[in-house]
């Protein structure tokens, strides 16, 4: 498992540009070398000039060692616009059995997945789509762990990448201070930083969750709302990624 926080004291200081140059040399697999060779924008690039790609993975569960990816949604973001018209989506066949509960959640059935390719087959397209872009997700932990595990299994190497996490940006505002004693005593519930609750705070409409492209779009919209509320178009990208 790959936790940036454990290796670097201050994640925002992490020089991802430098890291990518090193990985482009050291990676063994051609696909990964090509991905890292695309490089990254410098950390001081204004967010409005950074190519960003919202990502959502739909999985059969929460544990990468037992569950697999069933679909991937990508929605590009450029400046103030969410380029939903350039969205991409793949259905992939997980290497684990589908459980009934996950079918209910994603509305993707076994028969639909029987004909779907393995992740390895769409990997060239997927990596080409995200190369040179900063990934944007809600709850980076899940996406990172699943992508890392999936690539570790298939290529023998993990994927490393900077991420803007809309959940972490919400946590900065709503989880900055621990609950006071009084709040603990009153059992005040902590502000929810889940996707739908966060969207509601910015006046964004409710979307039905668990559909990869819709969730990626929902995340991109939340990000735009966060930018408009707390940041400026000139905010350096390094203030947002981790």
């Amino acid at each position: 498992m790959f936790y940036l926080g454990s290796t670097q004291p201050s994640p925002t200081r992490l020089n991802w540009q430098q890291r990518f140059r090193e990985l482009a040399q050291s990676s063994r697999h051609l696909l990964l070398r090509q991905y890292y060779q695309q490089g990254l924008v410098s950390p001081d690039t204004p967010v409005s000039e950074t190519p960003i790609m919202a990502l959502d993975l739909e999985t059969t569960g929460l544990d990468p060692s037992q569950h697999g990816i069933v679909s991937i949604g990508l929605v590009p973001v450029q400046g103030q616009r969410i380029l939903n018209s350039a969205a991409q989506q793949w259905l992939v066949k997980p290497r684990f059995e589908l459980t009934n509960s996950s079918v209910r959640v994603h509305r993707i059935t076994d028969s639909a997945l029987q004909t779907a390719p393995d992740l390895i087959e769409i990997l060239p397209e997927f990596l080409a789509a995200i190369a040179g872009k900063i990934l944007l997700v809600h709850c980076a932990d899940i996406e990172r762990r699943f992508l890392t595990a999936a690539l570790q299994v298939r290529l023998g190497e993990p994927l490393q990448f900077p991420v803007i996490d809309t959940m972490a940006l919400e946590a900065k505002v709503h989880r900055a201070k621990p609950l006071s004693l009084w709040q603990q005593f009153r059992k005040t519930p902590r502000t929810s930083i889940r996707l739908s609750a966060s969207r509601q705070r910015y006046g964004l409409p409710p979307y039905l969750p668990h559909h990869a492209v819709t969730d990626a779009l929902a995340c991109a919209e939340l990000f735009q709302a966060q930018l408009a509320t707390r940041y400026t178009p000139n905010t350096p990208i390094a203030d947002l990624w981790s």
Binding site: Q89, W90, E125, V213, T214
Partner: peptide, 14 residues
Amino acid sequence: MSSDQLEIEQLEVL
């Protein structure tokens, strides 16, 4: 875009 990729369902927009 390859044939592996689904036609994008824009459920919410639709």
